[in-house]
């Protein structure tokens, strides 16, 4: 335990779920660590999670600031410069089958690939989160209705459902986003529902109700604060799955379409070049792998830091 530099005595204390509200005040000279401070302290002591967070920040920053990085045009093809090897002058990561700069395409590709990984999870979080909260908090028939419909969608393997929806809607980025969102609503609903149901039965919720708190106040202060943690951890796992599935849909021709720069699509079009330039043809897949793994490891780190189980 690192010595506290502050003159106050800091008592490091594990604050169990649900007690945050009651203990959030400094008692005399004693300052209690809140739950989130404890979590943050633990994350800071976890090099793997920090490293993954760093890699992801770099990836996201590169995606946002791509036009200002001085990269060559990701769409400019040059038939004289096809499949230049990695390490060529002017083309650090070589060129693709149409002579387009790989580095630039990978960086620009992260825009579409990361968006297709993150947006469906956020959308599913909003929809599934509300459904799960309602099902868990209201219970009874409403719970039955929501959870049985969820069960039906749960009865599809996730890739199959994504392919089926995207395939029926037709190719395109928007349709892929819709398809993956639908795939992720049921799992998020389930996790939210199960956490909410557990919380609803807890004494502090009972106490809040007995002291006359409104339903809205109970949900806002007692339920939401405690549901958010586990659901957020779960959502980070889903992002890693989402990145792989979204790129996979583009890979089989359902998501992005040429000449878009998107990792899955690039991996597909470069399949014709595996004989001539094997290293270049696997680069887009490497990016998918790294992005997906970072989200997975961060989720693992957060899970142990937040002491979440589901």
């Amino acid at each position: 335990m690192s010595p506290s530099r502050a003159p106050k005595v800091t008592v490091s204390m594990e604050v169990p779920l649900g007690v945050t509200q009651a203990l959030d005040v400094p008692v005399g000279t004693l300052q209690l660590r809140t739950y989130w401070q404890t979590v943050w302290q633990r994350v800071l002591r976890d090099p793997v999670t920090l490293a993954c967070g760093g890699v992801l920040l770099v990836l996201i920053a590169a995606a946002i600031f791509a036009p200002w990085l001085g990269l060559s045009d990701p769409f400019a093809s040059d038939s004289a410069k096809r499949l230049l090897p990695v390490g060529s002058p002017d083309h650090l990561l070589g060129t693709d089958e149409l002579g387009r700069d790989m580095l630039s395409r990978l960086v620009y590709g992260s825009r579409l690939s990361l968006t297709m990984g993150v947006v469906p999870v956020i959308a599913a979080l909003a929809i599934g989160g509300v459904l799960g909260l309602v099902a868990g908090f209201v219970g009874g028939r409403v719970n039955m209705l929501i959870m049985r419909v969820t069960d039906v969608f749960y009865a599809f393997p996730s890739i199959l459902l994504a392919v089926a929806i995207a395939g029926s809607l037709g190719a395109g980025v928007a349709n892929t986003l819709i398809a993956i969102t639908i795939v992720f609503i049921p799992p998020i609903t389930r996790v939210t529902e199960s956490v909410t149901t557990q919380l609803r039965a807890m004494d502090f919720v009972e106490a809040a109700r007995a002291s006359g708190a409104s339903t809205y106040a109970i949900i806002r202060t007692h339920i939401l604060g405690n549901v958010l943690g586990p659901v957020f951890v779960y959502a980070t796992v889903l992002v890693s799955v989402s990145i792989v599935i979204a790129a996979g849909l583009s890979f089989i021709g359902l998501g992005a379409s040429p000449p878009d720069a998107e990792w899955g699509l690039m991996l597909n079009t470069l399949r014709t070049s595996i004989f001539l330039a094997p290293l270049i043809s696997i680069l887009p897949g490497f990016m998918i792998f790294i992005a997906s793994m970072c989200f997975n490891l961060i989720s693992d780190g957060l899970r142990s830091a937040m002491d979440v189980r589901f």
Binding site: R271, I274, P278, I282, G285, S292, L297
Partner: peptide, 23 residues
């Protein structure tokens, strides 16, 4: 295991083809 979980399996398939079929 964590690599396997995050692995885009279609990418692994391509790598296997490159190593065991092409090379």
């Amino acid at each position: 295991a964590i690599s396997g979980v995050s692995m885009p399996h279609y990418w692994l398939a391509i790598i296997l083809v490159i190593v065991f079929s092409v090379e």
